[in-house]
Nucleic acid binder design. Structure first.
Lengths: 194, 194
DNA sequence: TTATAAAAATGACCGTAGTCAATATTTATT
DNA sequence: AATAAATATTGACTACGGTCATTTTTATAA
């Protein structure tokens, strides 16, 4: 009887997203408050939750979009042909993911995929990362005894491990990437690792 | 003038811990409410936070103790000599960690070690896991081209990866352990993995 | 015994995410 | 234009973790 989604609704949702993105740009992800978003968007609190299941769902959208930008940049220069190139391609993304503890927590919380059809935005970027890295591994100078997808999943596991250990008073950004490299040397080129 | 910690305080803390542990045994970790704990312990809410920095700090203590029990059990039968044994030794611990989404989240949040001297209870169990697994690897039938500690850290990274992917409608417990095994075959015995 | 200072406990209060029954708006039908 | 039904918005309300100025208890010194 009615078309399902009114223009009004689409506009409200877009406004909420825009206002939230601006607030994050100004004060960081962890400082975002739903009440601030609805106030600046000029809508009631309930409206927010009519558009997003919860605050995390909004963060997922925004962080997912940001990760996608980093993946675009990582893909841009063509294939990563060895471990060093792989590490440096992933570097900006990993720096972003560890910029705030809050960001890393949200990402880890949503990295576990749901059913294929209902993959969340962050889980989708994880799938995309696997595809990209698997592509590099298949064509590059890496071990060939196991599938490139399995190897790519391992790369992701090691990235998370390195990032988790980074949230450590003694570990700085540089150490994180060095640690990541040691893992990948042993994972992707076991013959050379000795 | 006064001895620093009164007996009263030690008792209160013990009571809070006991009550919380019971509540968790009855209703699971995620359902724990601070208000319920203080009510059943017969103390005021503020008292809870005088004893524990926040709710997470209490969960860390309790979950840390539980993990230690699983590690005791994993160590009990002596060395794990190959990948299959390693997987089955880790199995009960991984099943516990994935029993509730909430448990896994708390564990991941606290896995990143702080400075050595202020290692939290969960971070300590991660160190202990590394030590145990590194011991198995050093003496067992595993690759020798990289250090056993690096290999053990990888085992942990893969365990977390397998558990994260488990929180997926399509993935059951069995699949989680199979996935874990594929990772470890490729990680610990690259020569045989083909 | 009393005075006193440190330690412990209290509970009203706050911040913030999330709910839901009531109301308002939009669009299709006649 | 009036009616009806689906869609969208509202804001008071709840749940729950966490704070802090105040009060109570405890142990020591005079």
């Amino acid at each position: 009887m009615l078309k399902q989604t009114q223009k009004r609704s689409i506009e409200t949702r877009a406004k909420l997203l825009r206002v939230a993105t601006e607030a994050i740009a100004a004060n960081g992800h962890g400082a975002l408050r739903v009440e601030e978003v609805v106030k600046n968007a000029g809508v009631a609190k309930g409206t927010f939750f009519a558009h997003f299941k919860d605050k995390d769902a909004l963060m997922e959208l925004i962080i997912g979009a940001q990760i996608d930008e980093y993946l675009d940049a990582a893909e841009e220069p063509g294939r990563a042909k060895n471990v060093d190139e792989l590490v440096s391609r992933m570097r900006p993304l990993m720096d972003f993911m560890t910029r705030e503890r809050y960001i890393f927590d949200v990402i880890v919380r949503h990295s576990g995929a749901a059913v294929k059809e209902e993959l969340g935005p962050i889980a989708q970027t994880f799938e995309r990362t696997i595809e990209i890295v698997a592509g590099w591994i298949a064509a590059g100078d890496f071990r060939k005894d196991v599938s490139e997808v399995l190897l790519a999943e391992g790369v992701q596991a090691f990235a998370i491990q390195a990032m988790a250990l980074h949230f450590c008073a003694i570990n700085n950004q540089e150490e994180m990437h060095l640690r990541f490299k040691s893992y990948l040397d042993a994972w992707l080129n076991p013959a050379l690792a000795s």
